[in-house]
């Protein structure tokens, strides 16, 4: 699971959960792979991101060392910043671990890089 997906995932499918965001993250296995850099895509996605969540998740996984804490001004032209966001967003992947609902504490296991968001019928 890429951190882009984590930035969007919520547990609001569970009955009684209002927002279910951001999901806590516990990683046991992390993989860093190479993905082609597409500056246009990163530029377009940054305004939509919840940057605080992204930074928090990157910090938890130990990949936030050179990532600024907030979105820099004029990020469109800041190639260096875009590269860093690209790296955290698309190249860092959680292979094994858990996602945790902030409201109920329910765990969603991540196996082989696929988060399991299935819930039981009594939770719907």
């Amino acid at each position: 699971m890429k951190l882009l997906t984590h930035n969007m995932l919520s547990s609001k499918c569970i009955k009684g959960v209002n927002l279910g965001y951001p999901l806590g993250i516990e990683a046991r296995d992390i993989k860093v792979s190479k993905v082609d850099f597409n500056s246009e895509f990163v530029t377009r996605i940054i305004p939509k991101l919840d940057y605080k969540t992204l930074y928090g998740a990157a910090e938890k996984l130990g990949h936030a060392t050179d990532l600024p804490q907030t979105v820099v001004e004029n990020f469109e032209s800041n190639e260096d910043f875009l590269q860093k966001v690209h790296h955290v967003l698309l190249e860092v992947e959680v292979i094994d671990g858990d996602l945790i609902c902030p409201e109920t504490g329910r765990k969603f296991p991540i196996n082989a890089g696929i988060p399991n968001m299935l819930i039981n019928e009594d939770e719907v």
């Binding site: 699971m1 995932l9 919520s10 609001k12 499918c13 890089g113 399991n116 299935l118 819930i119």
Partner: peptide
């Protein structure tokens, strides 16, 4: 899909239980 090494990210979920993503993404 993992074997085919697709670029997209995959999530195991039941569509009938809803879409587990936040708004407007």
């Amino acid at each position: 899909a993992l074997e085919r090494e697709v670029e997209g990210d995959l999530v195991l979920s039941d569509l009938g239980q809803g879409i587990p993503f936040r708004a407007g993404m």
